[in-house]
Amino acid sequence: MGLEVVNLTAKVGDKIVLRNVSLKVDYGAVHVIMGPNGSGKSSLAYVIMGRPIYEVLEGDILLDGESIKDLPTEERALKGIFLAQQDPPQVPGVRLSSLIITFTNKKLGAKDLTRPKDPSVIKRMYEVATKLGLPREILQREVNVGFSGGEKKRSEILQAMLFDAKIVIFDEPDSGLDIDGLRIVADYIKSLRDAGKGVMLITHYARLLNYVKPDKVTVLLDGKVAATGGPELAQLVEEKGYAYLRAKIAKGGGSTGV
């Protein structure tokens, strides 16, 4: 059960970005993906979500044992995977509230996507925004247009909360967040774990991990799984850096469980 990536090799354009990657996100657990820039962390998130510019060459993606590899992005989302993007695009013209109403309607199977099928969503979105330290009026603004870095991150969290998926992928939710923001993200991740959801947390630094203790850690290097382990692996990376891991692999000739 949970999300499983099996021997996944994928490319974008002519560039291979994932090579034979396997990993598992269990329910009630936080799986941290670490790696330097360009190691394939975000690519992994996009491929799981089915972004069309990525092509899967080999391997499979399973949700609760069923392949979702050939499903369009929206169906993966509706099956219960949510991706909070690292740098979500601006969507001029579309208010954040309209987007939330539309996707909650879609999840409820409403015919008309414009008027809220469940009117309580309006109250909830304002409550959650306040809880996340967002100004109420942000819901009336166009999605990500003129949002600060911190507002973008919080807006992704807001949507994740209202989308209520069973697998939530966070792509660097911590970059550009102040200490209050970090705490909010960490608390939310912990509450997801407590509620039995699966969390895949992509992060560049171990900073966030001071607040959330991961259940599993995978390090990607050059699109490959370089190391797997527990919280101690994150600690190792934090102390010694990726260069150390790279050198170690070169010596040992393959991925390693530390």
């Binding site: 996009y46 979500m49 972004r51 069309p52 510019i53 369009p72 992005t73 929206e74 993966r76 989302a77 509706l78 949510f82 991706l83 993007q85 979500p88 695009p89 601006q90 969507v91 001029p92 013209g93 579309v94 208010r95 309209s98 987007l99 539309t102 996707f103 879609k106 999840k107 996507l113 414009t114 166009e142 949507q159 989308f163």
Partner: peptide, 23 residues
């Protein structure tokens, strides 16, 4: 943008319709 909206569960057509109505 299209990927972003489809990752929220909307089909491409629904995403376009949302953008057009917003516009």
């Amino acid at each position: 943008q299209l990927f972003y909206l489809t990752s929220r569960g909307l089909t491409e057509d629904e995403a376009k319709s949302l953008i057009v109505l917003g516009f």
